[in-house]
Design a protein around this nucleic acid. Structure first.
Ligand SMILES: [Zn+2]
Ligand SMILES: [Zn+2]
Ligand SMILES: [Zn+2]
Ligand SMILES: [Zn+2]
Lengths: 166, 166
DNA sequence: CGGCGGACTGTTATAGTATACAGTTTGGAT
DNA sequence: ATCCAAACTGTATACTATAACAGTCCGCCG
């Protein structure tokens, strides 16, 4: 794994201007927070920017180190509180398999999605495929189980890495 | 909640003899290990039994405490090594959402499955629905993503708890 | 103005989860 | 009997997350 130092890799899907991603994410966040009276404070906004540093998930303590490197007074609760806020707003997602966080590319309040995690480059694609959710609800209901939340994380090789490996 | 103190609750889906579950699991484990020359040592076997104490997931440190309470010399690596072995053999599964481990009711080597976690009673149902896996692979392949491993954990209410709540 | 209440932040300490590493035992294969 | 690899023990440490409480900021009402 070309395990990037997580701090200085703004190189996402090889061939797009990632600044657009960041700008779009921040704009969407402003709108989203405005809509429901949530306050996107400086710390929260900065953490969101740091999460969007790449399309790869970032650990909470990596965010913490980044904040501290900027001279911020920061401790674990600082970043965990910001992350909790962003999670509540549906602006970032948590990847359970990695204990890490990734920006949501289409934030519209809390929503459930599926994540494709590339084991080679570490990037994450967020998928929102109704068929998957439906299949799961169907399987669960056959056992009388009432679904309230789904966690779906798929590991494998993204298209770019698959081609490169071949 | 049909709740029981979690330590002395061999009462899983309300109305089955759980000793059968345990016996079946241990038998399957012996067979499974015999098949591919893996050694089901005393510690490993005991950890498997402890995991099967109920149908609810157990944390690694709860297992550790149980081992120590039995007079075993045990430290975190003791139980993590046993769990790693059992995971490799497909005898237990890890639930990422809970940082906890649960016995596999139909062990046949490593396999991917779906888990229904009841938020009320804590019990876990393991599902192996080909339609779900297929839907995910289909969604992933549409993006050129090659799936190697799926993590699917669904939280909600099991049938028993749903009826009781209603 | 001045105090009140709620939301946010700072700070310290601690809980919970997992692994690295070095040394020792053990059970078989040669 | 000797050797080897796998398994075990023990200690220390890393990594992830939360508890608890004090201080700060800010809009609002009296
Ligand atoms: Zn981008
Ligand atoms: Zn990739
Ligand atoms: Zn049972
Ligand atoms: Zn239940």
């Amino acid at each position: 794994m070309p395990d990037s130092p997580a701090a200085l890799s703004p190189a996402p899907h090889a061939g797009h201007d990632h600044r657009d991603c960041v700008r779009a994410a921040l704009d969407a966040a402003e709108r989203q927070c405005g809509r429901n009276g949530a306050r996107l404070t400086a710390v929260r906004k900065r953490v969101l920017e740091l999460v969007w540093d790449s399309h790869a998930p970032v650990g909470a303590y990596a965010l913490l180190d980044a904040l501290k490197a900027e001279g911020q007074n920061a401790a674990p609760p600082t970043v965990y509180r910001a992350l909790d806020f962003l999670l509540d707003q549906g602006l970032v997602h948590r990847l359970e398999r990695l204990n890490a966080y990734v920006g949501c590319p289409h934030p519209m309040g809390p929503h459930s999605a599926q994540f494709l995690i590339c084991q080679s480059c570490g990037q994450v694609l967020e998928l929102e495929d109704p068929a998957i959710g439906a299949a799961i609800r169907a399987g669960a209901e056959r056992l009388g189980f009432l679904v309230s939340r789904q966690t779906i994380e798929v590991e494998g090789l993204c298209q770019a890495c698959r081609i490169q490996t071949a």
